[in-house]
Write a protein that binds this DNA or RNA. Structure first.
Lengths: 329, 329
DNA sequence: TAAATTTAAGCAAACGTTTGTTTAATTGGT
DNA sequence: ACCAATTAAACAAACGTTTGCTTAAATTTA
């Protein structure tokens, strides 16, 4: 039912080709009189271009697709804002699809909805693909880039923080404040990210002459409950005076669980969070954090899509932001 | 460069029509031998269907588009999950685009990226369109439904909570606990939502024999800073013993500002929040809230798109969830 | 064994655009 | 007044699918 270019052509008494050109402002091809007729007809018919049809013939699209691992992660909004702004500056549109965090089938479906239509590039947010789905992605001839995640395989384009540094600096923040017994909570020990943060954590301890203890690290999936569980595992008599938490949510988990255990933060326990989202300033006391530049990751991601192949593994800087959860001993 | 159905046809030695049918599993049209040849060829070429082309001829799409007002709102994730689950159950795909919360031009662009391609329906999350953009939306012959927002114009399909009830029950929760001087913070007085919440608030007060005072209501845009500003405006000597906050974020704003003013919650000040997202249980003390069923809104939204015209203005139920910020006087 | 039916596959049109090429009309130069 | 150059618009092919219709071969029926 929707009006097409042909309907306009008929109404304005010109050819579809001319309509197309008027609507695309290709001024070299038509006179002012026809232009007016066409515009009027288009308006009258409430014409809306069928972008899919246009993309079919031009073989080129101006939308970039973002695949997000889950709807819950709160830092993704900052990355998306970065993507959005940069994309808009380049005249690109952004669509987002959610993939399950674990279910490979959901991942596959999300990937397919993106691959099977013309998009100029794909950004994957903190997404850990199965090797099958990775192949699927690589099979499409579309440029892509992972964001906020890094891989052992150095051939995959990605933009993320230096996770070793993240772990190192978070730990160092506590060490500098005089802490010696420091836990690492809710960091996933299977992923590249988790392993490097752990390594950074251990290096920082060793550099300060502290020998890491096995029960100081309580792995988890960066979530609020993972944070709570880690703190529960530590218990009240662990001797720990400081904890590095794998994410802001995890940090709030340890914060609340510490409180439930009767531990005051930062008096009895200091916390350094990783991420530095707005959450840090919403809770009391405000979380000291190693903050990532999520906005820049998003921005760099779209730049990477526009000029692919430049530099595969990019690193965005981090800063430690001192707030209220680290006590100087 | 991507392989097309024709490439497969050539490689398998059959016609494109047959390839299409094999790939679509239209078993009535081909024999097992050809099927195998085609499958093999498709696999070998790494074929990916061009959905845009297919949608062009079938004149029908199975993606539903969600337009979100901003990346910040935290309840949107629940709505989206509801949409996602329900859509998946019906074999539909979901794409999301962000529109600016205020900028009409950004709104328009977001709307266009959605309207100009084949989508089977549009869900608008808490989006207040300019009348121009509303016309744009209505001009497209696509079914649509607003979510988590209602309008004076009863002809617009929408699914939301009963905002009058929200205001009424939030206020009543405090009244029942013995409070009489009750503020309303960070509720937007321009929108339908804000006006109805305000009306519900005033009715509850009057029903309890309390005369509303002008300086008890401090309008705002439902944000964290709006909450803080409202509490700042109340100050320490307002005499208020309870506050209804327009959103969870706003509630956290008044909570933190109250603390900064030296007011203990709930000892000195009780708070009832509106929304009931996970945020309520993350902060200390946990926020008592009038909780909305965001997940159901999303689910109902896709059902509405599938069977349009049934019931224009739908209402999802609310519950008050008692947590820790209301003190019984 | 001839006619009727079933099965398997191909032909060709269509969807709504864009764009290279062609044609027709107008203008300018001499 | 004639030819070249410019301007304005139309023609038609192409993009990658799907699908109604046709054709050809194989099978069944009488």
């Amino acid at each position: 039912m929707a009006a097409t270019i042909k309907d306009i052509a008929r109404l304005a008494g010109v050819s579809p080709a001319t309509v197309s050109r008027v609507l695309a402002n290709k001024t070299a091809f038509y006179g002012p009189a026809t232009a007016e007729k066409v515009q009027a007809a288009a308006l009258k018919l409430g014409y809306r271009k069928n972008t899919a049809a246009a993309e079919l013939v031009t073989q080129h699209s101006n939308v970039i697709a973002v695949v997000v691992n889950s709807v819950k992660t709160n830092f993704s909004s900052q990355i998306i804002t970065g993507i959005q702004d940069t994309a808009a500056a380049h005249g690109l549109n952004v669509i987002i699809v959610y993939a399950g965090i674990t279910d490979p089938e959901a991942q596959r479906k999300a990937l397919l909805t993106v691959i099977e239509r013309p998009v100029m590039g794909i950004l994957l947010l903190s997404l850990n693909l199965t090797s099958e789905n990775l192949q699927l992605l690589q099979g499409a001839q579309t440029p892509y880039c992972f964001l906020s995640i890094a891989f052992d395989d150095g051939d995959l384009p990605s933009i993320a923080s230096d996770d070793w540094q993240v772990g190192y600096q978070a730990t160092q923040t506590l060490l500098k404040a005089g802490h010696r017994k420091i836990g690492l909570a809710a960091v996933d020990s299977d992923s590249h990210t988790g392993r490097f943060r752990l390594a950074g954590y251990e290096s920082a301890l060793r550099d300060a002459g502290v020998t890491p203890q096995a029960d100081w690290v309580q792995p988890g999936v960066y979530s609020y409950v993972a944070g709570r569980e880690a703190m529960t595992a530590y218990g009240v008599a662990s001797g720990l005076t400081g904890v590095v938490a794998g994410s802001d949510m995890a940090a709030i988990g340890v914060l609340n669980q510490a409180r439930d255990l009767g531990l005051a933060v930062p008096t009895d326990l200091s916390i350094v969070s990783i991420d530095g989202t707005e959450m840090c300033e919403l809770v009391q006391p405000q979380l000291t954090s190693v903050s990532q530049n999520f906005y820049d990751m998003g921005a760099a991601g779209v730049r990477q899509l526009l000029a692919p192949g430049k530099q595969l593994q990019q690193v965005t800087p981090i800063q430690v932001v001192d707030r209220q959860t680290v006590r100087v001993l």
